[in-house]
């Protein structure tokens, strides 16, 4: 049984930009980001909350865009990987560190991992330990790297952000 449902106008604030956009109520935030706003950095992986490839931040908290109803985030602040560098006017230190450490291989999990990692660094506010990074990234699957380079990159970025010298 399918019910005819009309699109509604929703105010979405994505990466500090306001969008007034017609959204069908059964659309997820991920679908709206990728297919209506052309923000294809957030990836559609398992589409059911297992893989973390779609991770975005809502009001600064990393969440799964594939399990978020787009109409339910009206008026809230959504940040995608495209908005990550925006905050620092270029490349975020995390993106820089991922580059130096070769922490992205196929790259599919990278946007989600960056969003989880950024939230960790912001919350902790000091150079992080490996165990903290592993815990914070426990919802983001990577099938290429074995995580070692990713964890190294996040630790390195946190040191750089607190006055340390870039490693790797």
């Amino acid at each position: 049984m399918s019910t005819p449902v009309h699109a509604t106008l929703v105010q979405l604030r994505v990466n500090d930009r306001e969008h007034a956009i017609a959204v069908e109520p059964h659309r997820t935030l991920l679908e709206v980001l990728r297919y209506q706003l052309d923000l294809i950095g957030s990836k559609q992986g398992c589409d059911k909350g297992d893989c973390g490839a779609c991770t975005v931040q809502i009001d600064g908290v990393p969440q799964l865009a594939c399990l978020t109803l787009a109409v339910a985030v009206a008026g809230r602040q959504v940040t995608t990987v495209e908005g990550l560098g925006q905050r620092v006017g270029g490349c975020h230190p995390l993106q820089d560190a991922f580059d130096r450490h070769d922490a992205a291989q196929c790259g599919f999990c990278t946007p989600g991992i960056l969003m989880s990692a950024e939230a960790l660094l912001r919350r902790v506010g000091r150079p992080v330990e490996g165990a903290e990074v592993r815990e914070a990234l426990a919802g983001n699957l990577c099938r290429c790297t074995g995580y070692t380079k990713i964890i190294d990159a996040v630790i390195d970025a946190s040191r750089v952000m607190h006055g340390g010298v870039a490693g790797a």
């Binding site: 399918s2 019910t3 005819p4 449902v5 109520p25 059964h26 659309r27 589409d47 109803l69 339910a72």
Partner: peptide, 9 residues
């Protein structure tokens, strides 16, 4: 890709 059924929210 897994789509939600059409529904109202």
């Amino acid at each position: 890709m897994l789509r939600l059924p059409r529904l109202d929210v």
